[in-house]
Nucleic acid binder design. Structure first.
Lengths: 401, 401
DNA sequence: AGTAATAAGTCAAGACAATTGACTTAATAA
DNA sequence: TTATTAAGTCAATTGTCTTGACTTATTACT
C-alpha cells in the first residue's frame, strides 16, 4: 500500500513461447513460399529436421497444414511438400464506414468466403450497433453453412474504421466519425459476438490485406497509401503492422500542406471526400462507385482536373513516405474505384527524386494495390489471422500466452 | 545446382534463444528501474523466482550485475536488490562529421569514460581513415588505462555519420558526404580494429543515446528530431530503433516543403548548414560552437530571424511526425549548441493542433533532448551496447546466435 | 514475549521442446 | 548393379524453465 511503484519491464519467455514462435514461423514460411517439404522448412528456418517434423505433425493434427503429392527432384528420397489448409482457420472482418458497413469471412489463406453489407442508419452508433451485430451474425451463419467446423476455427473479429482514435474532442468535424469514436465499440462487439475483437483504422486494414494477399506479400517494409473517404497510410515495418503509441500511426491525412499561403490537411485535397465535394456529389448515393468510374472512363473534365491536383499532392506524399520510412515499396490502394486509382497512378507519373532511387533496386517505387470496396473488410479480417498465426515478438512473450 | 529457389522464411528459435532473451530482459529491467530484487524481477518479467535467481546468478558471475545492501520493506525476508555494474561492458562510439571526427568510450550504463576528437583532413576518406583508426586506437588505449579488463568487455564499435546511405549518385551535392558514402568504411574499420562494427546515421545515433540515458529512456515510441549540420529524425518504434529497409528511415531533411511557389528540402531551411549559409559563417571554423552560442545569447538580430523561420519549419515537422508516427513524445536534440536548441524550442512555441492532443496525456508533446557536440558519438556507442544487451526480436532467433 | 503471517529466496525433481547421431527409405547417377 | 544423395524417423540427450516444498528473515498481532 505504501510503496506501489510500478516496475516496468518486458516479459520473459519460456518453452511454450519458443514453440509458439516456431509454429508461427512454419505457417509464415508456407504462406510466403507455398508448399514446402520438411527438409526445406528445416533449412529455411534454421531448425533441425526433427523439430520441423514434430511441428508439422502437430500442425497437421490441428488441421492447419496438409501434405501433397511427393515430388522427385533429383537424387535422394522424394520430398513431401506440406501446404496450408485454407479451411484451417477463419476470421470475420468488419468495415464501418460513414454510410455503410461491410463484413466478410475469410479463411487462413485470405480467400473471401462470405461477404455482406448493410446501410448504416443516421441515428449513430446506438442505432448502428444493432445493424452491425446482425450483419456479423449473418455472415457467421452463412460461413457455417458453407464450411464445417467454422465456429471452432474462428480466430477473431477484426474491425476497421476511419481513425484517428482517442483524440481530444475536435468538436464536430464532419471529416471524423466523432460519434463512433466515442462509442464503446470493442466492448459492445465482444459482448455481442463472443469473439476476440480487434480494431484498426482503414488504412492499416488495407495494409494488412496487401501483406496477406496483395502487393506487400512477403515484404518486411512497405507503406500502403490508402485513398478512401479520407486518406491514410498503413505501415508495414519490420514485417509487422505498426500502430504507434495509440493506434494512430499513419494518419497522414492530417498532415498539413502549405499552399496559397494557407495550410490544408492532405485529406481535404486528396481523398474521396474532397472529390465528392469538388464534384458536389452526395456521398450517401448508392451508385456512387459506378458514377465515379463512369466519370473517369469518360475522361470527364472536372474529374480530370481534380485528378491532376490530387496526383500532385499524392506525388508529394509518396516522396515524403519514401523519405521518412525508407520502405521497399509504396503501394497505392483505396476503397476508391479501381479506374480512379489507376488514373491517379498514371497522373502521378514520374515520381519525385528521392532516397528510394538506389543502385540495385528491384521493386518498383510505386505499385498499385487493391482498389475494391471490400478490401478494407478483407484487411480487417486479415488482422485476427495475422495476430493468431504470424510470427511476431509479442507472441513469444509469457504475458501473451 | 539446378533448382536453387531461395526460400524466404523467418528464423526459428530454441532454448538458447529463450535464455538469451530472458537475460536481456533482466538487464533491460534493471536499466529502466534501477536496482531490483529477484522477487521484483520475477513479478515484472512473468518468470518464476527460480528462473530469475538462476539468471541473476549467471549475470553476476559474468560481472554484469551486482548485489546491493538488503532492504527491509515490511513483513517478510528483506530483499537483496541487484543493479547493473557500469564497468560490466564497454563500447566505442565514433562520429564522422564533415570536418571533425569524435570518439568516446562508454560503459554499460552509458557513462562516457573517454572522449577525444580529431580534425578530418581535406583529402577525403582515404586520408581520413587513418586519422579515424588512430583516434579509435587512442580512445581504446585510454580506456584500458582507466579500467580493468576493458578489452575483454568491449562489445563493439558504433559509427554514426550523416546519411542517407547507398543512394544512387546525386552528383556532388555538398550537403551529402558523397565520398564517405562510397568508402568501404565498415570493412576498413572492422579490419583495422578487430571489433564488431555497426553503422547508423547521426539522427539515429542521437535517438539511441536519448533512449539509453536521455529523454526517451524507457519509452517505446519516441521520435528524436535531430538538428545538426543536416536534420534528421531518429525513430524509436516498439522500443527499438527503426532503420527502414536500407538504414535510411527518418531522413526527414529531404522532405520537401513548398513555399514561395518552389519546393525546398527541409534540410536547406532548418539545419546548421542553412544557418551557416544564412550567416555566411565558415563551417570549418574551430570556435563555431562558441560563436553561435554567443550570437544566440546576445539575441543577435540576424540569428533571431533565422530562428523564427527555422522554428516555423520545425513546428510543421513536429506536427508531421506526430501525425505519421503517433509517438509518445517528440524530442528535439542536436549537435547544435544547447542555447540554440533551447531558443528553437522557445520559438517553436505552441505546437500545431494534432492527434497528439489526447485525453489523459502525461508526457509533453515536445521535450528538449541532448544538445551537445558529443551526443552523436555517445549514441554511436550506445548502438553496440543496445545490440548486445537490449531485448529485441532478432536476438531470439537462431540465425543471430 | 510469543506466535502467526508474510515475503524472499533455495533446493531438488520434473516437464517441455529442441538437438544429436545413427538409421531407414527411396530416388538418381555412374 | 552399385554408389551417392537426400528426406525423413527413432531414441537418447541436453538445455532451460517450472513446480512445490522448504528455509530464512522480518513485521504484525495478541
Amino acid at each position: 500500500m505504501n510503496d506501489i511503484r510500478p516496475i516496468r519491464a518486458k516479459s520473459g519467455t519460456n518453452h511454450e513461447g519458443t514453440s509458439a514462435h516456431n509454429r508461427r514461423v512454419m505457417i509464415d514460411a508456407l504462406r510466403m513460399n507455398g508448399a514446402l517439404s520438411r527438409a526445406d522448412l528445416a533449412r529455411a528456418t534454421w531448425l533441425t529436421k526433427q523439430t520441423v517434423s514434430n511441428i508439422i505433425e502437430e500442425l497437421e493434427r490441428d488441421g492447419l497444414v496438409r501434405s501433397q503429392a511427393a515430388v522427385r527432384k533429383g537424387r535422394g528420397q522424394p520430398s513431401t511438400p506440406y501446404g496450408l489448409v485454407p479451411e484451417g482457420a477463419f476470421a470475420i472482418g468488419l468495415q464501418i464506414d460513414r454510410h455503410v458497413t461491410r463484413a466478410v469471412a475469410v479463411d487462413l489463406v485470405g480467400s473471401v468466403l462470405v461477404r455482406d453489407e448493410a446501410g448504416l442508419p443516421a441515428g449513430g452508433p446506438s442505432e448502428g450497433a444493432k445493424v452491425i451485430l446482425d450483419l456479423v451474425a449473418g455472415v457467421r451463419a452463412k460461413l457455417a453453412g458453407i464450411v464445417q467446423q467454422s465456429e471452432k476455427r474462428l480466430v477473431g473479429l477484426g474491425i476497421a474504421m476511419p481513425g484517428p482514435f482517442g483524440v481530444a474532442g475536435s468538436g464536430d468535424d464532419p471529416w471524423m466519425m466523432e460519434a463512433w469514436q466515442k462509442f464503446p465499440l470493442l466492448e459492445t462487439l465482444t459482448a455481442g459476438t463472443g469473439l476476440d475483437v480487434g480494431l484498426q483504422n482503414d488504412a492499416a486494414a488495407a495494409a494488412t490485406a496487401e501483406r496477406m494477399v496483395g502487393a506487400a506479400h512477403g515484404l518486411d517494409h512497405a507503406v500502403c497509401l490508402f485513398v478512401g473517404y479520407g486518406i491514410g497510410a498503413g505501415l508495414i515495418l519490420n514485417g509487422e503492422l505498426y500502430r504507434g503509441a495509440n493506434g494512430n500511426a499513419g494518419e497522414i491525412g492530417m498532415a498539413l500542406l502549405f499552399a496559397d499561403g494557407k495550410s490544408t490537411p492532405l485529406e481535404h485535397r486528396a481523398s474521396l471526400a474532397s472529390l465528392y465535394q469538388y464534384l458536389s456529389i452526395d456521398p450517401a448515393d448508392a451508385d456512387l462507385h459506378a458514377q465515379i468510374s463512369n466519370l473517369v472512363s469518360r475522361g470527364d473534365q472536372s474529374i480530370e482536373s481534380w485528378i491532376a491536383a490530387a496526383a500532385a499532392d499524392l506525388r508529394w506524399s509518396i516522396h515524403l513516405i519514401e523519405t521518412i520510412f525508407d520502405p521497399q515499396t509504396v503501394i497505392l490502394c483505396g476503397s476508391a474505384p479501381e479506374a480512379l486509382v489507376n488514373r491517379l497512378i498514371a497522373a502521378i507519373g514520374p515520381l519525385l527524386p528521392s532516397i528510394a532511387e538506389r543502385r540495385g533496386r528491384t521493386l518498383p517505387r510505386l505499385q498499385p494495390g487493391m482498389a475494391d470496396p471490400w478490401s478494407v473488410a478483407l484487411g480487417a479480417a486479415a488482422g485476427p489471422i495475422s495476430r493468431a498465426f504470424d510470427p511476431h515478438f509479442a507472441a513469444i512473450l509469457k504475458d501473451s500466452l
